[in-house]
Amino acid sequence: MSTREAQAERPVEPQAAPQSAPQAAKGAMRGDLGAVRREMARRLALLTPAMGIIILVMVVPLALMLTYSFLTSARYGGVIWEFSTDAYLQFLFVRDLDDSLLFNDTYLRIFARSFGLSLATMGVALLIGFPAALFIALQPPKYRTMLIFLVTIPFWTNLLVRNYAWILLLRDRGLINNTLMDLGVISQPLPLIYNNFGITLGLVYSFIPFMVLPIYASLEKLDWRLVEAAYDLGANRWEALKRVIIPLAKPGIIAGSVLVFVPSLGAYITPQLLGGGRNLMIGNLIQLQFGASQNWPFGAALAFILLAIVLLALVLWALRARRSGTSLKEVEIG
C-alpha cells in the first residue's frame, strides 16, 4: 500500500516545483527593488575613487592627446590652438619647396621595423617560453609554484636595470664577447649590441614572463589524461605534443603572443639602450617629438596611431578569446 502511494505521488512533484519557483523569485524581486537600488548606489560610491582617478588622469589626457594631434605645432614645443591635419600628413608626406606633398616613407619604415622587431620578439619569446611553461607544468605541484615564482620575480624588477644588464653582457668588451675571445672562439668581438639583434634580445628579456605565464595557465589546466589517451591511441611524444598539448594550449599561446607583442611595439627603453639611438622604434620616435624635434602634434598623432594599433590587436584577441570561451582573467599577472 505504501508503495502505491509513493508511485502515485511521484508524477505530481515535478509539475508542482517549476510553478512555485519562478513565482517565489518574482515576488522576491518585486519586494527587493528598493534594496537593489540601494545596492547600486553603494557600488557606484565604492567605484568612484578608482574610476574617477582613471578617467581624470588617463581617459581625459588620452582625449586631450587626440585633440593635440589635430593642432598646429608651436616652434619651441607645445601647440597653437589652430586646427591642422599636418601631423597626420607628416606621417606619410613631406612638403616640397612649392608646398606640394611628396611621399616620404621615413616614418612608415620605423613603424615597419617596430612591427618586424615585435613579431620577432614574439616568435623568439614563444620558442623559449613554451618549453619553459611546459616544463613547469609537468613538475609536481609544490615545485610548480616555486618555479612560477621564479618566472614572475624578474618582471617586478626595474626594466631599465634589466636592459642595462644586457649592455654589460653584450657590448664589445662585455661578458659574452670577453668569454668567447678568452676561449679563442673568436678574435674580433661579435656585433651583439646596438643593432636589431640586441634590441630583440632585450625585448624578449623584458617581456618573456608575459609569454610563459598564460601558456603555463593553459597547460596547468590541461587534463593530463587527454595526453595519456593520445599515447594510448598510438601517439608518440611528438605527436601528442603536436596534436593534443599545443592545440589545447592555444588560448595561452595566443594570449602570450599578444601580451608580448603589444608592449614590444611601444617599447622605449630597450631600443634606446640596446639599439644605440640609431635603430629607432615607434616609442623613440614619439619621444623625439617631445624632445629634440619639439613637434607635439606629430608626437601626439604618432602616439594615437600606436594606441589605435594596440587597441585593435587587443580587441581582435578579446573577440577570439570570447569565441573560444576563454576568459581574459586567466592571463593576468600577479
Binding site: D223, R225, L226, E228, A229, Y231, D232, L233, G234, A235, N236
Partner: peptide
C-alpha cells in the same frame, strides 16, 4: 610505452 602496446583504454572521464 603505451603507444607501442596493442591495447586501448576507455577512460573513466572519457578523455
Amino acid at each position: 610505452p603505451p603507444f607501442r602496446r596493442p591495447v586501448n583504454t576507455v577512460f573513466q572521464s572519457y578523455a
